[in-house]
Nucleic acid binder design. Structure first.
Lengths: 206, 206
DNA sequence: TGCGACATGTAAAAAGTTACATGATTAG
DNA sequence: CTAATCATGTAACTTTTTACATGTCGCA
């Protein structure tokens, strides 16, 4: 994902400042927004202006000089070109999934230790879902027909996540299950590896 | 997400080489895996070894010297500690969502131009879903009880995505809808902004 | 009058990718 | 015998974050 194009897209909805663009990226993340620092935004705005894709509409003389940018005709065309290009595959990194996935490889005697992680995510996901549900009714934001479709996607995805969290908490509270598949018996071997490593440590200490 | 901890987690399932670790990251992305280059992996392995978190089990003398790493007792403890820490919020960047979201801000006369993007994603998502469905039955991979929970999450999420894609294609093929919310009339203003920018361009050319 | 939000910017550091260099092993 | 896969590593480059520096405006 090229930040440059995302900045152009944000400006396409209305002329705005670097600070405004940062605000757009503050929305709790569900694929549409993620954090970008001022240290990224301001240099990019300078670059985009020097390339003639955006221009300064107003430049206040007071203070540090608030600058409102808008797209140039070149900027509109670049944005149209980018929108038509096939989107990159999504980038997803979810530490919760990784921790759950590796949990009983490592935390042998502590099945239920993941549950606090799942409950915390449940709360966060409920909050994000509430945010996206209220967004189109807040009386302030502009949400186009197509913007509404992406909100529907986010809602669907978050609801699926909440269902999964509840199911998984129940499953973890229940009895341990055998591995879904382990043709090389790696899970048994791993138990021995842990045991051996911890025994070595004890003999080192003595 | 700290790559270091992910590398420790991968090694926890079995002793492995840098090359093996890279393979683990090749699985089509659904939150559990993403691309990491050799240029990241090998320096990290050196760093982890110098910190005493992993050790070289075998070091072949032939060729470039294949090195098989395993966790040390310090490494096992570090991994346990990390697993217990609350996971970071997920990182999500989906260009498709952004392009859909901004589409009719910019592509005024071309509602159906997004459909190819949606169909392409549909195909990719179906492939990823098929991959995750077959993974626990491939007779080769180790999938623990908890690993299976994360596979269930990915399946749920991808199914929700497929449903959304179908619904959205139908909606886009149907008649245009008014904005879900636009209190400042930004969408009408935007049409004027585009028109003005393109007219300026014409007068520049003449 | 003092705090929080508004507002811009830079330099150094961190993190990761790309491109390159090298060579062994294995399956057809 | 040759192409693909296995296998390690470095240097230069790119991208982005962090930390800092600076100052205004509105409101309680």
């Amino acid at each position: 994902m090229t930040i440059e194009h995302y900045i152009l897209a944000v400006i396409s909805t209305r002329p705005c400042t670097g600070y405004d663009i940062k605000q757009e990226f503050e929305h709790p993340g569900a694929g549409m927004y993620w954090g970008i620092s001022f240290g990224s935004i301001y240099p990019k705005l300078k670059k985009l202006e020097s390339e003639g894709l955006i221009e300064t509409l107003h430049h206040e003389e007071t203070g540090r000089g608030k600058k409102v940018y808008d797209l140039t005709s070149k900027g509109w065309r670049e944005l149209q070109k980018w929108l038509k290009e096939s989107p990159q595959p999504p980038i997803l990194k979810d530490e919760l999934l990784i921790k759950v996935s590796f949990w009983n490889h490592v935390m042998l005697e502590d099945r239920e230790g993941v549950i606090p992680h799942l409950l915390k995510r449940k709360k966060e996901t409920e909050e994000t879902l509430a945010y996206y549900t209220n967004w189109p009714k807040n009386g302030v934001s502009t949400i186009s027909e197509f913007g509404m479709y992406t909100i529907q996607y986010v809602q669907k995805k978050l609801q699926a996540e909440l269902e999964w969290i509840d199911e998984t908490i129940e499953a973890v509270k229940g009895p341990a299950k055998p591995p879904a598949q382990d043709p090389s018996n790696l899970i048994d071997k791993k138990k021995e590896r842990i045991k051996k490593a911890l025994e070595l440590e004890k003999s080192d200490e003595s």
